[in-house]
Design a protein around this nucleic acid. Structure first.
Lengths: 363, 363
DNA sequence: AACACATGCGCGAACTCCAGGCAAAGATCA
DNA sequence: TGATCTTTGCCTGGAGTTCGCGCATGTGTT
């Protein structure tokens, strides 16, 4: 073995000694922090490349050598720097999740879903709040193009053109934002709206109001369209109020506007807004569901314990996050998405709770 | 971009669509198009080092050259790879936030706070769920030692020894986990518990139960100790039940246990558990607050609109997250924490809502 | 038994991208 | 014209991966 050429040097890791070839002194700092691949290689008496392969491509290294290297690496607590690894491989093992508003519980569920799935796949999640701004979203996408291997855009505010451009340059999956440019996870809102309408009409409601969310929201447009299409043939009196910001505080304005339309039931853009409305209605002495029925959307945390509990179009949000991750990773995989899905539709169902009831008798 | 991408994109419909890559360069490394500093340098007719300086150290480069470089960089959409930058600087510009459970709304607020503050400082947030496991927490800390510049541990489950060791090697700030090894942001639970006790006794309650959270939780221990100390001198009949997992589903068991103690009021480890208890008590026909008063802790999302709205020890959780970030960044700064704060205590106040009321008259 | 060929293993160099030190070249001033 | 700046280029370091290649066996053939 070549170790006979080596001379023993002063160990710098917990009193261990190691062999070093008679070369110019490599500038290995012994700061006690973060051992590098070189440290491992020196201790194991092999080249750095061998260490690299032993750890990342084990079957291309002799078993004894590999085990020795693994042992030493473990002793040193060696962790390959993902920074340096990413340099040559071009990958970061991180994916970014862009949400319009970390404040919104809807996105919490998505965060949770992606987080779980990414961790399972050994990826790191980079969480970014784009503050409901398309510009900020595009900006983040640009700035992080090298930082993340891929992006999940939840409820993207991007224009079609911008999204197309972005998707051409990086791996992207959208959630609740249909697009022909990037794979998408859709939550089946149309189906849910239809269920909600059926529920309300079967309870005798004939004057129904759609309480709209932000105008830049794709899913809001979709929900309204379905609502509009489906009510046309049923002899219902419909109205629409909004747009309202998807926050609880907008609930007061939304409730007042909805009441003014004379409707006896509302289908509301999302649960946050709906819960805000419930509060306002109670303040005003309007009983739910006796005077007014409310249907929310998303089934967020809190929809089950608000007062009254909210009837809502429940969607498997967390699962949507997980599916988005799978689709993204498939895109990144070696098979290059030859057959990977472009669209996943998450099923939705109506969860009936206390906020909907029979239509009030006509005075 | 140069990609002729718009072709062969199926419209989306219900059902699944498949993508087929018809482009010549099958391995469309999305990053293959990402310009490097070399591209910019070549186009600008300067050396790469000049580009580097022009962008990160502008006053060391002639204005005309700099502007030319900036223009070209902008045209190319050039973004320096944080990977490579980190290599030489040793910094990643990323901070990891470790939370025991992303599911818990309490941490949502922390996530939100750190997210905002980090973004403002130009840092990326790496979110990790440690699943309430000390081992997993330590593991993450080790694995990410090179990935993040610093760590924020929310409600750390680490043992003192492990925490000490970790803090010796990396920049760490803890939230709600006192320690002499790392700077800490504390939420003033003792103060809150005292306020809650005063509130309850002033309402005539004399039999009060503490509903405990997980035994590994430092703040749970702290809350119980304060409760115990403070009730001793007041001639109150106290009891303790638990430990319970800090989840809504544990509320049922917690409620049943609390009722059995004969207490007329409960101080509950956190709001999640408290809200779960409210549900159970209603199921059992026990009225809140007429038969039983409930005080939660944290004032999470939902505490204001549950039924009845929850009286709770409100803490500025989001602000705690922000402060943690500031403390961490101070630690990372050039001054090396010589004078940076080791402890921040966030004030707390009792927010009285509908879940507390006068003690029931003795039968 | 000797030789040719095949295989496995590990080395070293080249590469990734950026920052920064040093030095050279050009510009300005005395 | 020499001295002092100012600008800019060259080169190296930093941590890891990848690839070509040589060395040392191992196998098969005559």
């Amino acid at each position: 073995m070549r170790q006979s050429f080596a001379k023993s040097c002063q160990g710098w890791c917990n009193g261990l000694t190691f062999e070093r070839l008679t070369m110019a002194d490599a500038p290995t700092r012994h700061t006690g922090t973060a051992p590098t691949i070189r440290d491992v290689a020196a201790l194991a008496g092999v080249a750095t490349s061998t260490v690299s392969r032993a750890l990342s491509n084990p079957d291309r290294v002799n078993r004894v050598t590999r085990e020795r290297i693994e042992k030493i690496a473990a002793e040193l607590n060696y962790v390959p720097s993902s920074q340096a690894r990413g340099l040559s491989s071009g990958r970061t093992n991180a994916i970014a999740l862009l949400v319009p508003d970390v404040t919104n519980p809807f996105y919490f569920d998505i965060i949770r879903g992606t987080q779980n799935q990414l961790k399972a796949a050994g990826y790191t999640q980079l969480l970014v709040d784009t503050e409901e701004s398309a510009e900020m979203e595009a900006d983040t996408l640009r700035k992080m193009q090298r930082t993340a291997d891929g992006f999940i855009l939840a409820a993207s505010r991007l224009s079609d053109a911008t999204l197309a451009e972005a998707a051409a340059n990086q791996a992207i999956v959208t959630i609740n934002r249909s697009s022909s440019y990037a794979p998408t996870v859709m939550i089946d809102t149309p189906g849910a709206v239809i269920q909600a309408l059926e529920h309300l009409t079967s309870l005798g409601h004939s004057r129904i109001c759609y309480v709209g969310g932000p105008s830049s929201s794709w899913s809001n447009a979709k929900r309204w369209k379905t609502f509009d299409d489906e009510t046309r043939d049923r002899g219902l009196t419909t109205s629409r109020v909004g747009p309202f910001a998807p926050k609880m505080t907008s609930g007061a304005a939304a409730a007042d506007a909805a009441v003014r339309t004379g409707a006896t039931a509302c289908i509301v853009f999302n649960d946050l807004l709906a819960i805000g409305m419930l509060q306002r209605l109670r303040e005003r002495g309007i009983r739910v569901p006796e005077d007014m029925s409310i249907v929310g959307c998303d089934d967020i945390f809190g929809a089950d314990f608000c007062n009254p509990p909210l009837t809502t179009m429940a969607s498997p949000i967390e699962q949507a996050g997980r599916v988005a991750v799978s689709m993204l990773l498939a895109q990144l995989g070696p098979l290059r998405s030859a057959s990977s899905r472009r669209l996943a539709v998450m099923p939705t169902h109506l969860t009936v709770r206390g906020s909907t009831g029979s239509a009030p008798q006509q005075g």
